[in-house]
């Protein structure tokens, strides 16, 4: 499975979680798609005068989707494609409005909005490079956490927490508690998580302030 397939599969799963009312889903979706969309759209519209419009368009597209996720039909295409079309459409509208307001000819090249028939090609053409940068932010968090949490077992627990994993059994397995009664597993897993969070908080407090 390549990176693009992974993004699409993960996106489909997160969409289902969002529709089911999962509290973490909007954050997971934003973290997965926003950097990709912003980067790809910035690259495509690199010569517009106000590049901030790209970020606004991407944010608005995601906000619309989060507000009404039912409008996206997974049977008709991929979530990335849906958001890409929405972002690009929003951006083109903004550029058009800006043109009307300033009533002057802008020199940027405006790309035509692709038809729905071509949407599935877009993602493969636009994104492979951006996808490699997918976990940049995640890596930064991991580095900061690892600077404080040095135990490999604890780091594995933190990784699960940051992935939004809820099942006690997954944690219990890492902690070697599989054979304990469920109530005991729950208690010990919670204690471990709390201990790690306290260690992290203390580590952050001890850390020198950033310049």
């Amino acid at each position: 499975m390549d990176d693009l397939d992974h993004v699409n599969e993960t996106g489909a799963r997160f969409h289902q979680e969002l529709v089911n009312g999962d509290h973490l889903a909007p954050s997971k979706i934003a973290e997965l798609f926003l950097p990709l969309l912003a980067r790809a759209l910035h690259r495509k519209f690199h010569n517009i005068s106000d590049s901030h419009l790209v970020d606004i368009a991407v944010a608005d597209a995601l906000l619309s989707y989060l507000t009404e996720p039912q409008k996206f039909d997974p049977g008709r295409g991929k979530l990335f494609t849906y958001l890409w079309i929405a972002s690009q459409g929003d951006l083109l509208n903004r550029l058009q409005q800006e043109r009307k307001h300033t009533s002057r000819k802008l020199d940027e090249k405006v790309v035509e909005l692709p038809s729905y028939a071509t949407v599935n090609r877009i993602q493969a053409e636009e994104d492979p490079e951006a996808i490699l940068l997918l976990s940049e932010e995640t890596l930064r968090v991991k580095e900061e956490v690892n600077a404080i949490i040095t135990d490999e077992g604890d780091r594995a627990i933190v990784a699960l927490m940051l992935d939004g994993i809820r099942e006690t059994a997954t944690y219990a397995e890492i902690l070697g508690l599989k054979d304990r009664p469920f109530e005991e597993q729950t208690l010990l897993v919670k204690r471990t998580k709390d201990r790690i969070k306290v260690a992290l908080r203390r580590g952050l407090e001890r850390r020198e302030p950033r310049p």
């Binding site: 926003l34 991407v58 944010a59 608005d60 906000l63």
Partner: peptide, 20 residues
């Protein structure tokens, strides 16, 4: 600053939404 600007824009919009 280390975050994509689009994320900040989204957070700005969600600040007005009591569900978030």
């Amino acid at each position: 600053l280390s975050f994509p600007l689009a994320v900040s824009e989204l957070v700005k919009r969600l600040r007005e939404n009591p569900d978030y």
